Amino acid sequence: MANLVNSYSLTDFQRHARTYIENINETHEPMLLTVNGKVQAVLVDPVTYQETEAKLEQARFIAAIRAGEQAIQEGRTRSAEEVFADLKAKYDF
């Protein structure tokens, strides 16, 4: 979770963008940007962003595997022959 201490107004960020971006890239800590005192955006460095995206993709992949395993356990499966026959009939190929 982002540290609320590391929050700045959008106006202040606009005035000192280069300094803030350098700081984000050095610390790898997210920065919260506020408008009228409410958080409206979160800024992260590219490395942290890519790591987060990779972790999210991995979590989605694991969830899909678990869903497939659950379907197998519940008997909600079909043979490849059935699937291909349905596709052939549906798309007439």
Rank of each mutant, 00 (worst) to 15 (best):
F84P: 00
H16E: 15
T34P: 02
G37N: 15
V35F: 13
A41Q: 13
R60S: 06
V5S: 13
I62M: 06
I21E: 14
D45I: 06
I65P: 02
Y91L: 02
I62Q: 12
S7F: 01
R18Q: 15
F61Q: 11
Q58I: 01
Q70E: 15
N6R: 09
F13A: 03
D45Q: 08
R18K: 15
Y91Q: 01
L4F: 11
E69Q: 15
E26F: 14
A89S: 11
T34L: 10
A71C: 09
M31P: 00
A67E: 15
Q50Y: 10
L32S: 01
L10R: 08
V35G: 07
L4N: 06
L56Q: 01
R66H: 10
A41C: 11
L32C: 04
L56G: 00
P46T: 09
T34C: 09
N25F: 07
E53L: 12
T27S: 15
Y8K: 08
E74G: 03
L33D: 01
A17T: 11
L33P: 03
Y20L: 09
N6M: 05
V35Y: 13
N25D: 11
G75L: 04
E26H: 14
E29L: 10
P46R: 11
A89C: 05
A89L: 10
A80L: 12
L56V: 02
E29W: 05
G37P: 12
L32R: 05
P46D: 12
M1Q: 11
F13E: 02
R15A: 14
A54G: 01
E74N: 11
R60K: 10
A54W: 03
P30N: 02
E74H: 09
E51M: 09
A71R: 14
E53Q: 11
V44K: 00
K55V: 04
I62G: 02
E22I: 15
F13I: 04
V39G: 01
Q73M: 15
S79G: 04
R15H: 12
Y20A: 08
E57G: 03
A54P: 01
V35M: 09
T27H: 07
I24Y: 05
E29F: 08
G75V: 02
R15D: 12
E82I: 05
T27C: 09
Q70P: 07
F13N: 04
T52L: 07
Q50F: 08
P46C: 07
K90H: 05
A67V: 08
G37V: 09
L43S: 06
E51G: 05
F93P: 05
N36I: 07
R66Y: 06
A71E: 12
A67S: 14
A59L: 04
A41Y: 13
S79V: 00
R18I: 14
E82L: 09
Y91G: 01
A63Q: 04
A89G: 12
F93T: 03
V44C: 03
E74C: 00
I72A: 13
F13H: 04
P30I: 02
Q40E: 11
Y49A: 12
P30W: 02
E81P: 01
E51S: 08
A89H: 09
Y91N: 02
P30Q: 02
V44T: 06
V39C: 00
Q50G: 03
I72N: 08
Y20V: 09
E81C: 01
F93I: 06
K90D: 02
V39D: 04
T11Q: 13
L32Q: 04
I65V: 12
L56K: 00
